[in-house]
Structure formats: structure tokens, C-alpha cells
């Protein structure tokens, strides 16, 4: 077993445990934090597969989504004193962030993977209908949310 496999197994164990903690935890805040670690682990796997651009995009997209969940979790928490992370969890988050940066720079040299950039360029030049459907999906979700919430939105000027 070489070093790449060892690193992968460490990331996989970290990811699986945090994924299970998402619904084993009794606190919503801890579930959201565990999901953050699981997403960081999945982005690390992308980096180890030689897809550094996809790893970064995965982090950006899901960090954006998770920040929303984080806001919901903070709002839903009954006791505001218990929403802070334990120190070891905060250290685990920081360690996983360092880990993904190291894995990205190391994994890029390990494999000759197909380029994400060239595939994305051909996708954006030829697959207009699918991209339009994606944009319409997001737009309709935003409009639907506004319609659902129209009675509850208060504009304060």
C-alpha cells in the first residue's frame, strides 16, 4: 500500500464518521458541522483524484449552501449558549482545511487525470439546453420561495 492509498483511507474514515454523525448527533448545530467536515472530505477525494478545480468548486458551492444551513441551525437552536463548537471540533475543521490544500497540491502531481477546464469549455460551448434548464431550475426555486413566503415578508424601510 503506497502513501496515496494511506492518505485516501484517512480521508475516507474521517468522511464516513462525520457523515454518520450528521444524523447521530442530537444537536442541529453539530449535524451541520459534521456535514461541513464530510463535504471537505469529499472535496479532498476530488483533489486526490487529480481534479483540483472540481475540489475548489465543490468547496465553494457547498460552503455557500452550508452557510445557509448554519444560519438556520443558529436560528433554530433553543439555547444560544450551546451553539459554539467544542475546541476539538474547531481544530478538526481547521485540520481538514489544511489537509485539503496539501492533498490538492500533492494529488495534482500523482495522476494524469482528464482536464476539467477543457471539458467545461466544451460543455459551455455546446450544451446550451442543459445549462438553460439548470438556470431555469434555480430561478423557479427562487420565485417559488418568494411566493411561499410572500405573506411573511416584512419590508422595513
Amino acid at each position: 500500500m503506497n502513501d496515496a492509498n494511506l492518505v485516501f483511507f484517512a480521508i475516507a474514515a474521517f468522511t464516513i464518521v462525520s457523515a454518520a454523525w450528521v444524523f447521530l448527533s442530537r444537536k442541529l448545530m453539530h449535524s451541520v458541522m459534521a456535514l461541513t467536515v464530510a463535504f471537505t472530505g469529499s472535496a479532498s477525494v476530488f483533489a486526490l483524484l487529480g481534479q483540483s478545480e472540481m475540489a475548489l468548486l465543490q468547496l465553494f458551492v457547498f460552503v455557500g449552501g452550508l452557510s445557509t444551513y448554519l444560519m438556520v441551525a443558529v436560528a433554530a437552536e433553543e439555547s444560544k449558549k450551546e451553539i459554539m463548537l467544542p475546541r476539538f471540533a474547531a481544530m478538526a475543521l481547521a485540520a481538514s482545511a489544511i489537509f485539503i490544500i496539501l492533498a490538492a497540491s500533492w494529488g495534482a502531481g500523482q495522476q494524469q487525470a482528464p482536464s476539467f477546464a477543457s471539458a467545461a469549455a466544451s460543455a459551455f460551448s455546446s450544451d446550451y439546453p442543459l445549462l438553460t434548464i439548470m438556470a431555469l431550475t434555480l430561478f423557479s426555486a427562487a420565485i417559488g420561495s418568494i411566493l411561499v413566503l410572500r405573506k411573511h415578508i416584512r419590508l422595513v424601510v
Binding site: 468548486l57 458551492v61 455557500g64 438556520v72 426555486a141 413566503l149
Partner: peptide
């Protein structure tokens, strides 16, 4: 990624 973003919008509403 689009489905994930849509799900977040739905959850918050």
C-alpha cells in the same frame, strides 16, 4: 450543484 443550491433555497423558505 444546481439541485443542491435549489434545495438550500427550498429549505430556507
Amino acid at each position: 450543484w444546481a439541485v443542491a443550491a435549489t434545495e438550500v433555497i427550498t429549505v430556507i423558505s
